[in-house]
């Protein structure tokens, strides 16, 4: 399986038929592992355990709305790509909240499968790149700290 076709995608929608329709599509057309949840409250703990690369969430849900969920998801998985899937009536509120959660893309229902697939693929790539970048920055910071330590020791030895 190609890397571009691997990764975990999480779908959160209180309407089971939406979550299930997306699952059928992604399992037929892609190699992604698909996790579906009808409750954002139940989806949050799974983010701690699973290396989710793309999160697709509904907006209007009981108990916790999609923006609050994605804000929490951002804390748990900062590099995961966040996508909102809204009903038309939610549009105004959703757009207002987009910047709050660093949204990558938003779709209106009914959605276009092909477009969604492309955005998910780009989202997975984006998440992978961010993760790699973060690892390299960490490696650089470690190397830098190590060099500073050696420099300090050298200076102490010479002076």
């Amino acid at each position: 399986m190609k890397d571009a076709d691997a990764g975990i995608v999480m779908i959160v929608d209180d309407e089971v038929m939406v979550a299930a329709a997306l699952r059928s599509f992604l399992e037929l057309e892609t190699g992604y592992e698909v996790l579906t949840y009808t409750s954002p409250v139940e989806a949050l703990p799974a983010l701690q355990e699973q290396d989710v690369k793309v999160i697709i969430s509904d907006f209007m849900m009981p108990v916790m709305d999609g923006i609050t969920f994605l804000r929490n998801a951002r804390v748990a998985r900062p590099f995961a790509t966040r996508i909102l899937l809204t009903g038309y009536a939610d549009k105004e509120n959703a757009i207002r909240a987009i910047n709050e959660v660093g949204l990558y893309h938003y779709f209106e229902k009914p959605w276009d499968n092909e477009h969604l697939k492309m955005v998910i693929r780009n989202g997975i790539e984006r998440c992978t790149l961010f993760t790699e970048l973060d690892q390299r920055v960490s490696a650089l910071e470690n190397a830098n700290a190590e060099l500073s330590g050696m420099r300090r020791k050298l200076m102490q030895a010479l002076l």
Binding site: E15, M17, V18, A20, A21, L22, S24, F25, L28, E29, G87, Y88, A89, K109, P110, W111, N113
Partner: peptide, 28 residues
């Protein structure tokens, strides 16, 4: 009417996606 449009949108969204999935499945 606005409420009804929203209520219809959920099953419509699912049916729309599923129709596309069936077409793809048949193609495969």
């Amino acid at each position: 009417v606005a409420g009804l449009a929203h209520e219809l949108n959920t099953p419509l969204g699912a049916l729309n996606s599923n129709h596309d999935v069936l077409r793809r499945a048949l193609g495969k």
